[in-house]
């Protein structure tokens, strides 16, 4: 190294490992978030089937609606890898289109969640009523908060894309936002399995549950 090396900070600098510092930060943050959601999920699992009064999960959870919203979130994950791919190839039209789609799908997911929460409230399930309510609402609403934050972030990036500030050279900015978005998605994958599919089966008699018809 010569004297007076120029160094930019928080940028893609030449560094000891050769990986982007921003990406490293994001991965480390995701590792930290694993513990955050891990604790909430562990709380949920530890309090599973311990509610003293209803409404119980099998009465309230609406699997068809949630399946659709799960599917929407999964596909938004596809959208963002495509947006990133096209951005890296500098095919800006497609990149903008997919980013917009991701944002729409994200807002759709939040819409489903709002609908679901109000539906539950109408059925008398609130965070105050029993343990299932407490654990369910804190976990899903904090996940929703993560999604909302992601949407704001992606909108900010989309505006940058339209203004020409986000292009193939600094695709890393979209890449780390994408990592965050995928992480929110995988958390939902776990939530869907544990909080919805498995929990909705708790306490269900062998005959099945009302909305399916059953035997």
């Amino acid at each position: 190294m010569s004297t007076n090396v120029t160094i930019q900070h928080g940028e893609e600098i030449n560094n000891s490992t050769g990986v982007s510092a921003k990406k490293l930060l994001m991965w480390t943050f995701l590792g930290s978030d694993v513990m955050f959601f891990g604790t909430f999920i562990a709380t949920f699992m530890a309090y599973r089937n311990k509610s003293l009064v209803g409404p119980y999960p099998e009465d309230t959870l609406n699997i068809p609606i949630t399946s659709v919203s799960t599917f929407v979130l999964l596909m938004s994950s596809l959208g963002i890898v495509l947006a990133l791919h096209y951005l890296k190839e500098a095919r800006m039209g497609l990149a903008k289109f997919w980013l917009l789609m991701v944002i729409i799908m994200g807002i759709g997911f939040i819409g489903f969640q709002i609908y679901e929460f109000s539906h539950f409230a109408n059925m008398g399930m609130t965070p105050q009523v029993n343990l299932f309510g407490s654990t369910f609402f804190t976990l899903t609403s904090l996940h929703g908060a993560h999604v909302s934050l992601g949407i704001l972030w992606l909108i900010f990036l989309l505006i940058n894309e339209y203004r020409g500030n986000l292009n193939s050279e600094n695709a890393i900015d979209l890449e780390i936002a994408g990592l965050y978005w995928h992480f929110v998605d995988i958390v939902w994958i776990v939530i869907f399995a544990l909080l919805y599919l498995i929990t909705a089966n708790d306490g269900v008699p062998p005959g099945g549950i009302p909305w399916i018809g059953g035997h």
Binding site: L24, W27, T28, V81, H182, V190
Partner: peptide
């Protein structure tokens, strides 16, 4: 989970350090 992490999040192709960090956590 594994599919999204490995392929959408590119962990399969990326620097080994990211896998190390995430898998450790």
């Amino acid at each position: 989970f594994a599919l999204v992490v490995a392929f959408f999040m590119h962990l399969r192709f990326d620097h080994k350090m990211f896998s190390t960090i995430f898998i450790t956590c």
